[in-house]
């Protein structure tokens, strides 16, 4: 459903993505990991057109993301995104955060959008927080609202950009549980994360990036048991050391 072919991007003369090629099939869960600055976040932001790329091709359901004629807003309603720092609208209640794009991007009726938002809040176990403002929610709760906000558009795929990196340790599992549920429902997912436990549990494939390159792209069993590259071995030994 998502296909990347030789994607290159640079900021001025600094390359951040160097010929990245991979594909994510429908229903597949792919975890992207790698040291900081390796281009993981940039890569998934390219997939929904939040970051432009200079060459190569990214296709979502056959539609070229970088093409001038592509209706990016429409494409983005089909590919949800969750950010490291939640990015909930601070001037709106949790419910309104989830309603906004349903009404303005999908043109749903407000009553219908609110019902959907309520159902999603219940799904992420926050039914009683509909009227709370982001500032009054914990990090884990905010991130679950953010996931609900993305799901409200009934996307076919979800992108997660380090969804648990900004959370206190005790809140990580409540967010991962929601993501594990989603994966169980057959959602297509690309997840940038350092949560190797999550990767072992739900990933179909693991992509390891370093310095803008996809160094390793393997089924998770193979990635964890016998990484091919020296760089992936070093990375794994560092993050699994303790």
């Amino acid at each position: 459903m998502i296909a990347l072919d030789q994607v290159c991007k640079s900021y001025g003369s600094t390359p951040v993505l160097r010929g990245c090629t991979t594909a994510i099939g429908r229903g597949e869960v792919v975890v992207i990991c790698g040291p900081s600055g390796s281009g993981k976040s940039t890569l998934i932001k390219c997939i929904n057109g939040l970051e432009p790329y200079q060459s190569g091709s990214i296709r979502v359901d056959g539609v070229e993301v970088g093409a001038r004629t592509t209706d990016l807003p429409k494409m983005r309603t089909r590919v949800g995104m969750v950010f490291q720092h939640f990015e909930l609208y601070p001037h709106m209640s949790a419910l309104d955060n989830i309603v906004l794009a349903q009404v303005h991007a999908l043109k749903r009726k407000r009553s219908e959008a609110e019902a959907r938002a309520q159902a999603l809040l219940a799904r992420v176990d926050l039914a009683e927080k509909a009227d709370a403002y982001p500032i009054d929610l914990s990090g884990g709760q905010q991130q679950r609202v953010a996931i609900a906000r993305a799901l409200a558009l009934d996307p076919e795929a979800m992108l997660f950009d380090e969804p648990t990196s900004a959370l206190d340790p005790e809140m990580i599992s409540e967010v991962l549980d929601v993501m594990i549920d989603l994966a169980g429902d057959g959602m297509t997912m690309a997840v940038v994360t350092h949560e190797m436990g999550f990767a072992r549990r739900v990933a179909d494939r693991v992509i390891f990036m370093d310095r803008g390159e996809i160094v390793e792209d393997a089924p998770k069993e193979q990635f964890f048991s016998a990484p091919k590259s020296q760089r992936a071995r070093e990375f794994l030994s560092k993050i699994l050391a303790h």
Binding site: N48, L50, L72, P73, K74, R76, T77, G80, M81, F83, H85, E87, L88, Y89, P90, L100, A101, H104, A105, L106, A146, R149, A150, L153
Partner: peptide
């Protein structure tokens, strides 16, 4: 800037992200 990005990521147009968020 992350807030505008989040608005865009949910399929709002640039004008909507500006006006609503």
């Amino acid at each position: 800037p992350g807030l505008a990005q989040a608005a865009l990521a949910t399929g709002l147009t640039r004008a909507q992200a500006l006006r609503l968020v």
